[in-house]
Design a protein around this nucleic acid. Structure first.
Lengths: 344, 344
DNA sequence: CTGAAAGCGCTAACAC
DNA sequence: GTGTTAGCGCTTTCAG
C-alpha cells in the first residue's frame, strides 16, 4: 500500500542533524534553541509528516496533568450527575497520567465565581468551568489563559473569553427543538403556553428562550406565549410559581421548562390534575425527569449527555495539554430528544 | 489520599517470585506454565489489583491487529457512511497498532455471506459484520469464534451466535419510538398508516415493525395500520410501491419507512402533492433524509450514529483483543431522534 | 517450563 | 544552545 511507516522522533532528529532533546524542545516550544535550528527542525517535521505517538508520550511523562471542574454549588441533580461522572473518570485519567477534582462555586454570583477562578492559578493545568457570562468571569478566565492554563467552558458558554473550547449543546437550537415538539404535540388545540426558567442572566437559559420564542412565533402563532417565570432553578420556588400559573390560566395547553427545578413543576402539574392535558417539555434526563416521562406527566425531555460532556472535556483538555489530535465528530455534544420509548 | 501507585507487571513478578515473561504468559493464557505457577501468579494479580497499562502494551506490541468490516454490497447510503467512517479511522488505528479494511458481501444471500465469512479464517484478528440472521451465517460466525477470532455484529444482530458483542440500537425500541412520534404528530385526525420495509427476513426490520405495531395498537388504535410493503431497500422498488399505496389510500395520514430506499418514497410523496398532509418518519440521517426534513417532507428521522458505531466497534474489538477495559456507557449506541431543528 | 534482555517512541534529568 | 542517557511498563525473541 502506501508508506506505512510512521516517522519517529528519532527520524526527525537524524534527518535534521540534531539530537532528540532538541527536537523535543522545538516541538514543545521550550525555548533555548537557535531560531535557525527551530526552523530546520520544523521543516523536517513537516516534510516527514511527523506525529508524536501519544502512547509513548504518556508512558514517558513524569508529572500528572491536573484538571479541575468548577461546578455550581447547590442541589441541582444534573450538576450532581456531572460531578459523579467526573469522579468515575478517575481510573481512566490515572492511565493517562492525569487527575481531576470537582470544586463547587456559587454560579449566581459573578464575584464569587471569578474570585474562585482567580484562586486556581498555578494549582491546575486545565480548568473546566460551568460558565456564567459576566465581565468579571470573562476577565478571570482570560487571566488563567494568559498564565498558560487551558480553560474550557461546560454547558453554558462565556463567548467573549479566551477559553479554548465550549463543551455543550447549541442552546438556541435546543430551544427551537423544544418549540417544534411542543407545537406538534399540542396540535390544533388553541390555548396558551407557559415558560419557566432559572434566570434570564444565565446564558444557556436565555438562548433556549430565544430559540423557543422564534419557532413558536413563526410556526405556532395560534398559541399564546405567556411571559417567562423565573424560578432560580429551585423546586421550592418553581412549585408555587407553577401552581399559580396553572390557576390563573385554565386555557394552558403547554409548558416549557428551560432550566432546573423540575421536581417542583412536576408536583404542581400533578396536583392540578391537568398533567394529562398539558404538554410539558423540560431539559436534562435526570432520574425524576425519567419518571415523569414514564408516567406521562412529561411529554419529552431535551437532554445533553452528562457522561459524554465530561468524557469529552477530559479528552479535549488532555489533548490541548499534550498537543494530541482529537476527532471533532466525536466531541460534538448532541441535542438528545427522549420520549417515553427511547430512554437509555 | 489513597494508594495512588498502580501495581506494575514488575511488582506482580517480584511478589510472585517469577519473571516478567512468566507473568505475561499466564496473563495472556499462552500456556507452557505449570498449573501451580499459574495459580500463584493469578492470586498475586488479584491481590495487587493489577491492571495492565494499555499505553505501554501498545507501545511494545510488535504485530498489528487486523480488523475487517463486512458490509452489504449495493448502493445504500447509510452503508456508504459506515464505509467512509471505517476508512477515516485509519490514522487513529495506526496509532493503536491496528488496521481496518472494508469488504462488501451480498447480505440478502445467506450462502454468499457465510461463504465470505468462512474465507476470513487466519487473515484477520477481528471481524465486524452487518448481520443476516440465518443458521448458515450463525454457523460461519461460530466457526470464526472457535478459531479465536473476535466477531462482533453491527447494526443488525445475529443473536444465537457466539459473537462477543452487538453494536447497534435496540430496534424494537426504535420502532416504538417511531410509533409514538407518528401517533402524536398525526394527532386526532382519523385515517390509515402505511409501512414500507426492506424485507421481513432482516432482523432489524422485523424488530422495528414489531415495536411499531405494538405501540400503534396499544395507543393509537383509531389509526388503521395497513400491511407492510417490502421494497428490498431499493428506491427503484419503493417508489412505485409507495405511489400505488398513496393512490389506493386517499385516507392515508402517516407513513413509516423502516429500512432504506427513502429516496423513492420521498419522490412518490412529493409527486402525490400530499407530502404536507402525511406524517412521514424514516430511519438514518443520510444527506437525503436531511434534505427531506428541511423541506418538511419528512417529519422525523430515527437515527443510529454511523460514526459512533464504527468508533465503538473499533474500540471494542481492540479491547477484546488486548484485554483492555471499556467504558460501557460510552459504547451504548443511542436512538437519536432528529427533527428539522436539532440536526447536527 | 522459566528467565534474561532488548527494545517500542517518547520525556526529562543532567552534562557539556 | 545542544547532546546523552536513563527510564516509563509492557511484549517478544532467544536461551537455558
Amino acid at each position: 500500500m502506501s508508506t506505512d511507516e510512521r516517522a519517529t522522533l528519532h527520524d526527525v532528529a537524524r534527518t535534521a542533524g540534531v539530537s532528540l532533546a532538541t527536537v523535543d524542545r522545538v516541538l514543545h516550544g521550550r525555548g533555548g534553541v537557535r531560531t535557525r535550528t527551530i526552523e530546520r527542525v520544523q521543516s523536517v517535521v513537516e516534510r516527514l509528516g511527523y506525529r508524536p505517538d501519544p502512547a509513548a508520550a504518556r508512558l514517558a511523562r513524569k508529572n500528572q496533568s491536573r484538571l479541575v471542574f468548577v461546578l455550581p454549588s447547590g442541589t441541582n441533580t444534573f450538576v450532581d450527575m456531572l460531578d459523579r461522572q467526573v469522579r468515575s473518570m478517575a481510573p481512566w485519567l490515572a492511565e493517562q497520567r492525569a487527575t481531576a477534582v470537582v470544586q463547587r462555586a456559587d454560579v449566581f454570583s459573578p464575584q464569587a465565581l471569578s474570585g474562585h477562578l482567580a484562586g486556581l492559578h498555578g494549582r491546575f493545568d486545565a480548568v473546566i468551568v460551568m460558565g456564567l457570562d459576566h465581565p468579571l468571569v470573562r476577565a478571570a478566565i482570560d487571566g488563567l489563559v494568559a498564565d498558560g492554563v487551558v480553560v474550557m467552558t461546560l454547558v453554558s458558554d462565556v463567548p467573549g473569553s479566551q477559553r479554548s473550547r465550549f463543551v455543550g449543546i447549541e442552546n438556541v437550537t435546543a430551544g427551537r427543538t423544544a418549540a417544534s415538539l411542543l407545537g406538534r404535540f399540542v396540535g390544533p388545540r388553541p390555548g396558551s403556553v407557559g415558560i419557566v426558567m432559572g434566570s434570564r442572566g444565565l446564558r444557556d437559559h436565555a438562548e433556549r428562550l430565544f430559540g423557543f420564542e422564534q419557532v413558536m412565533g413563526a410556526e405556532y402563532g395560534t398559541l399564546q406565549l405567556l411571559s417567562p417565570i423565573e424560578g432560580h432553578d429551585r423546586s421550592e420556588r418553581t412549585e408555587p410559581l407553577t401552581a399559580q400559573l396553572l390557576e390563573r390560566h385554565p386555557e394552558l395547553v403547554g409548558l416549557y421548562s428551560i432550566g432546573a427545578g423540575n421536581r417542583g413543576i412536576q408536583a404542581a402539574l400533578e396536583r392540578s390534575g391537568r398533567a394529562a392535558k398539558i404538554v410539558w417539555i423540560c431539559h436534562e434526563l435526570t432520574p425524576h425527569a425519567r419518571q415523569a416521562l414514564l408516567t406521562g406527566v412529561a411529554d419529552a425531555v431535551i437532554n445533553q449527555d452528562a457522561g459524554h460532556e465530561v468524557r469529552s472535556s477530559c479528552r479535549l483538555a488532555l489533548a490541548a495539554l499534550s498537543g494530541e489530535r482529537v476527532l471533532p465528530e466525536q466531541e460534538r455534544i448532541r441535542i438528545d430528544i427522549f420520549l417515553r420509548d427511547n430512554m437509555p
